[in-house]
Design a binder for these strands. Structure first.
Lengths: 347, 347
DNA sequence: TTGTAGGCGTTATCAG
DNA sequence: CTGATAACGCCTACAA
């Protein structure tokens, strides 16, 4: 029995030091750390006092080994937009600020055939308490099957409810796009171009559906020739803009499914000598930094990614921290987007 | 002795299973894992075979506990620019792809009085092998003292050599800004405005020095009234642009210390009815996505942040993975920036 | 070159 | 309510 080696005072204090000082067993200290209710107040006080005095902090690696689980949550993403990732991260961190949890950010490559193996390796090695999965990979069912199999909690983040409320946080893209489009229609603009996002993902579909909803609701016919394909990147917005604008019956407004493509549309307009606004109104989606840096500043939809991060992390963590609800409604799924009116289109 | 519990076949295989299957002791397996040279080839082969057969992967938590060190590197940053962080991350990940290392990204708040305590808590809890520190907090000496005290390796990333080569990766901001400014001067533009970055950091100083160097080298007098203060953010670029342009003797070109401020300058020019290029040429620094999304596309300096991430991670990891050099010169400190000519200024 | 014994700091079991 | 003892899976020291 050399457990008291640590009492020599060198290095950081361990549970043994606390136990010795408090005059209890280490299991009792462990109980205190884990907020066990099975303790007398007197013992609790003694242990707390000893912990204070020693400045003891439990060793996460040792806990991880014993619990087969790291006190860490992970963010899985394959998102080319740095600002989106960072804003989400900000929300997550604000939610876990007062906990002992760590955050690991894991970018993955959705085009890689080894994607799933890569994620599995990461999860089995790191053993996080749970994972937060950002779009677009949040739409892949195989990743959730994997999480279930490995018994790792998860939250999917997307542009529409992708799972049951306990496992999902979503924005209301369809609804807000409908609203914004309706505002354009209400101004008398009947010919509105639309630049789609990439095929195979959910958010472009939601946004397009919202666009179509507005036309349907207002009984306005939608000209299919004004629907252009994009892929969320600048160049595709530029190309789509040229396609839509370089013709006799060009639209009076263009809705691009994200801000990056909207800036591409602006470039297309300028290169054709069109004034925005004036000859053309342009709206985007996301409200990234780009939206307020282009000229004219972009009327767009604020996608509440930071709020979504906070809610997602809160949901995930509440499973482990019990009553810790962070004044936040855990049943909430949808974080509402809202319209931001700037110079490129007046509503 | 119940070590052979794991032989029951449940759960993931441990070092004991491998040892049993290979007919050696677990220490021998441990030697294999840690690439010890003190093994006969025959034993090595036996162990390797057993590992293959079992699909054994060492448990990082157990290693972390025994070694008092996590097989993880951390990125510390307080950078508001998501794309910068993401690009750096990309470089880091490409460097550690073939290793068993994990990456944790840790944003911090440099304005918080608890910054150092926060970092210390993170480092003592997570015990990463090393940390990569991005600007601007890479300039704070207290953080490195902390790393030394905790015996955690570190690499500082900055716009100039901040430390000895083993602990530092830098770009050559001063040099490339000098080059770009000289090109402007060579065109005959003698009145060039300059928008500074925030005070108290290194990169703005480097960039300003490069600007001044060009004037000095070419024997052109620098008009102090054309030096405006900014803080790297869009709004400050807008304000500085207005200040520099709304006067009789406005400059023919403006050098903004980063792209975000350069877009602010563009807005200022437009709001004053100036054409870019034509009435004014504008150049920026960073080559973030913004640079190619604004109108006109921005002539700027490509700041090689991804390459810097790769180099920094390679340096850090080489301390632990021995001969693993990743075909990369570890003595290299400077990753050169280069000029990207686009529409806002012709060189 | 290989093995034995013990430690890393925590939690689980189960008896008191 | 509390504590002795045995995990958790790996590594180091020392011995053989």
């Amino acid at each position: 029995m050399r457990d008291d080696d640590n009492l020599r005072g060198q290095g950081t204090p361990t549970i043994n030091d606390v136990a010795a000082l408090a005059g209890v067993s280490k299991k009792t200290v462990s109980r205190f750390i884990n907020k066990s209710p099975l303790m007398s107040d007197a013992t609790r006080a003694k242990v707390e006092q000893a912990i204070q005095q020693l400045g003891y902090v439990p060793n996460p690696q040792a806990r991880a080994l014993a619990l087969r689980r790291n006190f860490m949550i992970a963010m899985l993403h394959d998102n080319p937009n740095g600002q989106t990732v960072l804003n989400f991260q900000k929300g997550v961190l604000s939610a876990i600020k007062d906990t002992e949890l760590a955050l690991a950010v894991r970018p993955v490559d959705r085009t890689s055939p080894g994607l799933l193996a890569d994620i599995e390796s990461f999860l089995t090695k790191q053993r996080p308490l749970g994972v937060l999965i950002l779009p677009p990979i949040s739409e892949r069912d195989d990743i959730f099957d994997l999480c279930k199999r490995l018994d790792i909690a998860y939250i999917r983040v997307g542009s529409a409810a992708l799972d049951d409320p306990a496992h999902c946080v979503a924005s209301n893209d369809r609804e807000v796009v409908q609203e914004l489009t309706a505002a354009l229609l209400a101004k008398g603009l009947k010919r509105i171009g639309f630049v789609r996002g990439p095929e195979g993902f959910r958010s472009p579909i939601e946004r397009e559906n919202g666009f179509r909803d507005a036309f349907a609701n207002n009984g306005v016919a939608l000209d299919a020739s004004l629907m252009a394909q994009g892929n969320y990147r600048f160049d595709s917005g530029l190309a789509a803009g040229r396609e839509l604008l370089d013709r006799e019956d060009r639209p009076g407004a263009i809705f691009a499914s994200n801000d990056e493509m909207a800036s591409g549309v602006l470039h297309a307009a300028y290169s054709l000598g069109l004034a925005v606004p004036g000859d053309l109104e342009v709206v985007g989606f996301d409200d990234t930094a780009t939206a307020s840096h282009v000229w004219p500043t972009l009327t767009t939809v604020h996608w509440p990614i930071e709020e979504m991060g906070r809610l997602a992390a809160t949901k995930l963590v509440s499973e482990f921290l019990g009553d810790w609800t962070h004044d936040c409604d855990l049943a909430q799924v949808v974080v509402p987007s809202y319209i931001v009116e700037r110079a490129s289109a007046k509503l």
